[in-house]
């Protein structure tokens, strides 16, 4: 039985409210909150980035697993805000954890689904007998052009998952749906991403999320009723809610993982933080559907079955506890933290 052996998460403590961003750009905050379903978003500190978020999340995962870091045989970090264009984040994480030098490592990029791609790779490597444990991280300090609609949701955070045998949540099946769909991109040397506006919805997010979920269910014979929880990538709160309804899930199925309302979209960390929040409360034998989405585009779907091992697994502090620990910043401090202005 292979699956998630441990997980950890990290959310920077700073938040900015949608009202504060809307104030600066003369927008109607009520309309934006209504449209996106996001009230506030997380903001990293000046000394935080994808590597630091990845390390903090991974340290929590290693501590909860109670394993020797040297037993980790692979480190994959999925992000679209790797601190270096060339030079891996994974090695920074590996070194900070004390993994040693005997491990497979790479940075992954597939917009917001690079973290789940890392989970699939770790799952395969464990299954192939190449490694005992693999570490998959999805983390981002996502950038948005000031004034762009993305700015209301582009957030920071990450989650780390250790994949191995004897798990707290078995990966029963995984399936991906992929196509070449340029709904959102960032060209080399450009500081901010560009996107296709409404084109990011139907042909991109919904087509891939729904197709991946249905593909998983068809290939591995699941029905919607087989799942107790569902977690979808959360570019905003509206998309995952609509996707859930299209697949026949109720709001109760997705509420626990819908962290986007309170922290925004942490890109590669988004669906993984939702999964972590869900595992925080899941009971043995409950089943979770996880579907990520990465622009460009693709979705990775997972069927996860929680095992008895979760009963003795340390789940404190929970993701929602971390969400509650927050310090608000105004737009000027936000600009400083995001290094858009410098002393």
């Amino acid at each position: 039985m292979i699956g998630i052996v441990s997980y950890g998460s990290y959310i920077p403590k700073f938040r900015i409210k949608v009202e504060e961003i809307a104030r600066v750009w003369g927008e109607d905050a009520k309309k934006i909150k209504g449209g996106l379903g996001v009230h506030e978003k997380s903001v990293p500190d000046v000394d935080e980035d994808t590597a630091t978020i990845g390390v903090e999340a991974a340290r929590e995962a290693v501590k909860r697993a109670g394993i020797d870091p040297e037993e980790i045989g692979a480190v994959f970090v999925g992000s679209e805000s790797h601190p270096y264009a060339v030079k891996p984040t994974a090695t920074i994480v590996g070194e900070a954890l004390g993994v040693g030098n005997d491990y497979y490592a790479a940075d992954l990029e597939f917009a917001c689904k690079a973290g789940t791609a890392g989970m699939q790779i770790c799952f395969s490597m464990v299954k192939a007998g190449m490694i005992k444990y693999g570490l998959a991280i999805g983390a981002d300090t996502s950038q948005a052009r000031p004034g762009d609609a993305l700015e209301y949701a582009a957030a920071a955070g990450g989650a780390a998952f250790i994949i191995g045998k004897d798990p707290i949540a078995e990966i029963e099946a995984t399936y991906s749906f992929t196509s070449d769909t340029p709904d959102f991109w960032r060209r080399d040397l450009q500081p901010y991403p560009s996107h296709g506006g409404r084109f990011t919805g139907q042909p991109a997010y919904f087509r891939h999320v729904i197709s991946a979920a249905r593909g998983l269910m068809e290939r591995y014979s699941y029905k919607t009723e087989d799942f107790d929880y569902a977690v979808f990538h959360m570019p905003n709160a509206k998309f995952p809610v609509r996707a859930a309804r299209m697949l026949g899930f109720s709001d109760e199925h997705i509420g626990q993982g819908l962290v986007v309302r309170a922290i925004g979209n942490a890109y590669s960390g988004s669906s993984l933080l939702g999964l972590a929040a869900t595992l925080d409360v899941a009971e043995p034998d409950e089943r979770v559907l996880l579907v990520s989405f990465g622009s460009g585009a693709g979705s990775d779907a997972f069927a996860l079955r929680v095992t008895d091992k979760i009963k003795e697994f340390e789940r404190e502090p929970k993701v929602w506890d971390k969400i509650e620990r927050k310090v608000y910043v105004d737009y000027a401090i936000y600009l400083k933290h995001r290094r858009k202005i410098k002393a």
């Binding site: 000394d47 980035d49 630091t52 390390v55 601190p83 900070a96």
Partner: peptide, 24 residues
Amino acid sequence: AFRRYGEDGEDGIIHYGTKFVPVD
């Protein structure tokens, strides 16, 4: 806490290290 300490200019390496934060 694992944090960034600075960088050798915009095209230089980034220095990471250990900082401390209040225990909550």
